[in-house]
Amino acid sequence: MELEKFKELHTRFFGRELQEEVLQSEEYEAYEEAIHEDEACYNWATAEKLKRQGFDYKSYCCMMMADKVFESLDEEGEVKYDDPTVVINKWDEGLYGIPVHDGGATMVVINYCPWCGTKLSK
């Protein structure tokens, strides 16, 4: 999908309660597919979300990493240790890790981004 068309659909669909007939429409299905399958659309939508939240996404190697780190933080910007949906954490020391959901702060330190393969620096 063209990015400009995606932006138009995003304006119409995102953050709104939509009626069932809209959710079943071909346009909405194309929008959903684009956000999940088209990297440019995903990156744009994710950047918009993170900008609204005041999150510094530009310091990350890719939008997926920025988004997953953002999702790992609570409202105060602290790492959520007890949330089983968290797939990656970034600690103040600059370390990245995949949490082991064992009730503690155990993690497997990683040196490369699992999504884009970039070497992670501290």
Rank of each mutant, 00 (worst) to 15 (best):
M1S: 10
L3T: 01
F6L: 01
K7P: 00
K7E: 02
E8S: 09
E8D: 07
L9R: 12
H10S: 11
F13L: 02
G15A: 07
R16G: 00
L18T: 07
E20H: 04
V22L: 07
L23I: 13
Q24C: 04
S25E: 04
E26R: 12
E27Y: 01
E32N: 05
A34F: 03
I35N: 02
I35S: 04
E37K: 03
E39W: 06
A40M: 09
C41T: 07
C41Y: 09
C41L: 09
N43Q: 09
A45F: 12
A47P: 04
A47M: 14
K49V: 09
L50R: 10
K58H: 03
S59K: 15
C62W: 02
M64L: 11
A66F: 02
A66M: 03
A66E: 06
K68T: 13
V69F: 04
V69L: 04
F70N: 12
E71Y: 06
E71F: 05
E71R: 13
L73N: 07
G77A: 03
E78W: 06
E78D: 14
E78L: 12
V79G: 03
K80C: 11
K80L: 14
D82G: 09
T85D: 14
V86H: 08
V87E: 14
V87F: 00
I88S: 02
K90A: 03
K90H: 04
W91Y: 14
G97A: 01
V100H: 06
H101L: 11
D102Q: 04
G103I: 12
G103N: 05
A105S: 10
A105C: 09
T106E: 09
I110W: 07
Y112G: 00
C113Q: 15
P114T: 11
W115S: 06
T118V: 08
K119W: 13
S121W: 03
